[in-house]
Nucleic acid binder design. Structure first.
Lengths: 208, 208
DNA sequence: GTCTATACCGAGATAGAC
DNA sequence: GTCTATCTCGGTATAGAC
């Protein structure tokens, strides 16, 4: 019944692409929830419904799989983009909502935090951040020091994720989202403003 | 030859207090550099010059040892304290200096970042932060929402440690310390200021 | 009472048989 | 393409040497 497949089996069973995709999807969940070290190969493959060795077969190693997971996680825009004037508040609001205590969002920053322990994982994450989120946010900010300012914004973002959801300090976990948004927006304001140069044209204003 | 030791061995050998302290000192180094999961009991005890079982004997478990390490790391003041007006700049400067690329400081925030992966370790760290750094910084800030503001400051602190030293993004690693101090101070300004209440008396103004 | 040696269990990675 | 040892490594428990 499970074995006897006649001619046309639509998908599943012996389809490399499907197996690969199933592993990748399962790995995103496991790595984000448990971090690079905490996620077990057996847990990932069990969730994907395949044997443990498939990871080595399709991704070379646990590390190779992690690299693809990072690319997939940071690929789509995380920080909502707006014109530069409203940027701090837009980021602050999204951050406050996504880090709310009951929310169970699968976020690349969670992946980052829980995987930063391992140097090998950290290096993979750095490449992912600089390529995707960092470049997008820098593009939204524009002007001189765009990358530096963007990375300071990401530092506050990651730190908020850390303190509010991973560590779970009481004051941050219990605060009202409106109030938190105000405070975060105020902290982000300085890095969204031009230092000395004139207002550079903002490119790629739709996504970030 | 290796075994025959005569009478008077000064200290060391069979001194519980000395052994305990040696393990603790070694554990601070290993946990800070490699995180909770990354540090092995064998590495720690080898550095301390004792057998691996001594951790179980003196601290119950690896987790118990970690709890004492967290307390010791967060115990002494990390954030330099000043009067409230100069607080943002003081914190920013210390942060910029301590996260400079070549600096090899043993910092509690590094310990936090590299250990946050494990839920058990995260819980221990939360207690340590709230008890020590969080309470001290909240005391320096004073007024309403002191704890919330303090924890947002710690979020930026931890995030800067993360992005600059653990992940190691290029823009943050290469920036001039003076410039970084300015930007960080500007970001910290909003959380050091009173929201609506009058100026509350600042207690414990010497250390933070 | 202080410490070491040895063994057990679980997890990741590899090799080779089917 | 899958399964089954097997190797290594890490945290822990027990026994016993000094």
């Amino acid at each position: 019944m499970l074995i006897s497949m006649s001619a046309a089996q639509p998908a599943r069973r012996r389809d490399a692409a499907v197996t690969r995709e199933a592993i990748l999807a399962a790995a995103v969940i496991e790595f984000t929830e448990n971090g690079y070290a905490g996620a077990g190969v057996r847990q990932i493959t069990e969730r994907a419904g395949v044997s443990a060795m498939m990871i080595n077969r399709y991704f070379g190693s646990k590390q190779g799989l992690f690299a693809e997971v990072v690319d997939r996680s940071f690929g789509p825009p995380t920080v909502v983009g707006a014109e530069r004037s409203g940027l701090p508040r837009a980021i602050a609001q999204a951050l406050a909502e996504n880090t709310a205590p009951d929310t169970e969002r699968l976020d690349p920053f969670l992946l980052t935090l829980r995987s930063a322990s391992d140097p090998e994982a950290a290096d993979i994450v750095r490449r992912g951040i600089e390529t995707h989120v960092g470049a997008r946010l820098a593009g939204l900010i524009g002007g001189s020091e765009a990358e530096l300012r963007a990375q300071l914004g990401l530092a506050l973002t990651a730190g908020t994720w850390l303190m509010r959801t991973v560590i779970g300090t009481h004051a941050l976990a219990g605060v009202d989202n409106e109030r938190l948004t105000e405070l975060l927006a105020a902290m982000l304001e300085p890095i969204a403003q031009e230092a000395d140069a004139g207002p550079a044209p903002v490119r790629d204003a739709s996504a970030g």
